Amino acid sequence: MTTHPKRGSFRLQFFLGFLACAGLLAYAIYLQLHDGLEPCNLCIFQRFAFAALGIVFLLGALHGPRSRGARVGYGIGALIAAIAGIAIAGRHVWVQMQPPGFASCGAPLSFMRETMSTWDVVRKVMTATGNCGDIDWTFLGLSMPWWSLIWFVLLALWAGVAAFRRG
């Protein structure tokens, strides 16, 4: 039994996308548990976006759709998750670029969940009012939100190439 080469290629590309998301989440958790870097509210939402993107990648890899329409559907799902991540990471980068004390994240997410509606929590976190402006970690001169933004863009492109190519 032979598999269609495009189908296998889609499966492999989406599985590699899943592994990238899982690796990024694992590294963030490692930094939190091993190095004591506590995530801010925008970091938590970026983790949710990476998890959502990873789930779409995993589902697409497991399904390995034969039809172009189904591949495009998975691509659209991945792009939606990646665009959400781009928006959140972009907001976080913006917060970090502001003068100290100008923008922050607000109360801890657990406290906000207990005292506010879901919509109010999302609105509050996205308007950043706590420690999101702090830069506690850098690699090659870029903070973690910058790297998240770069990875969301790369993974969006990766999903687009896998899902929207002809074949």
Rank of each mutant, 00 (worst) to 15 (best):
M1I: 13
T2Y: 09
T3Q: 12
T3W: 03
H4R: 15
H4D: 14
K6W: 07
R7G: 01
F10Q: 02
R11L: 03
F14G: 04
L16A: 15
L16S: 12
G17L: 04
G17C: 13
G17D: 07
L19D: 05
A20Y: 02
L25Q: 09
Y27A: 14
H34W: 13
H34L: 14
H34I: 15
D35S: 09
G36D: 05
P39Q: 10
N41C: 06
L42A: 06
L42F: 05
I44P: 02
I44S: 09
R47Q: 15
F48A: 10
A52I: 07
L53S: 02
L53P: 00
L53V: 03
G54Q: 08
F57H: 02
F57M: 06
F57A: 03
G60W: 01
G60M: 03
L62E: 12
H63T: 13
G64V: 00
A70K: 11
G77P: 02
G77W: 01
G77E: 07
A78Q: 04
A78V: 04
L79M: 13
A81Q: 05
A81F: 06
A81T: 11
I83R: 08
A84S: 13
A84N: 08
I86L: 12
A87K: 03
A87Q: 08
R91P: 00
H92I: 04
H92M: 08
W94R: 08
V95P: 00
Q98Y: 08
Q98S: 15
P99F: 04
P100V: 02
G101S: 02
F102D: 00
F102C: 00
C105W: 01
G106L: 04
A107I: 10
L109S: 10
L109F: 15
S110C: 06
S110Y: 14
F111H: 14
S117L: 11
S117A: 12
T118S: 14
T118E: 13
D120K: 13
V121S: 02
R123S: 15
R123T: 11
K124I: 08
V125W: 00
M126Q: 11
M126H: 09
T127G: 15
A128N: 02
G130D: 06
C132V: 01
G133S: 15
G133W: 01
D134S: 05
I135P: 02
W137L: 09
G141P: 07
L142M: 14
L142C: 09
L142P: 02
L142W: 12
S143K: 03
S143F: 03
P145N: 10
S148G: 11
L149D: 02
I150Y: 13
I150K: 06
F152M: 11
A156E: 08
A156Q: 10
W158D: 13
W158Y: 14
G160V: 01
G160F: 00
G160A: 11
A162T: 04
R165T: 11
R166C: 06
R166G: 07
G167A: 12
